[in-house]
């Protein structure tokens, strides 16, 4: 069970994955927008997205949960 959390304040620009999707290490989960850049958030371990905590347009703070990979 790995929690993926936001590293910085950002807008959720695109949600690429969905709950229940199988992901590999390095797969893009969501793309954040911050510092005028599009910053992909990647899975750090293979597994299944058991929880997706953000939607497009959300604002995440540093440390906020983005997804859980089980």
């Amino acid at each position: 069970m790995a929690e993926v959390r936001a590293e910085m304040v950002a807008n959720v620009w695109k949600v690429v994955t969905t709950e229940g999707t199988a992901v590999d290490d390095g797969d893009t989960l969501v793309i954040l927008e911050s510092m005028k850049m599009e910053i992909p958030v990647l899975a750090e371990a293979p597994g299944t997205v058991t929880k997706l905590a953000v939607a497009e347009g959300d604002v995440v703070q540093e440390g906020d949960l983005i997804a859980v990979i089980g």
Binding site: E7, M8, S34, M35, M37, I39, P40, L42
Partner: peptide
């Protein structure tokens, strides 16, 4: 490394 914190 732009992937992390935009490379800031």
């Amino acid at each position: 490394n732009p992937l992390r914190l935009g490379g800031c």
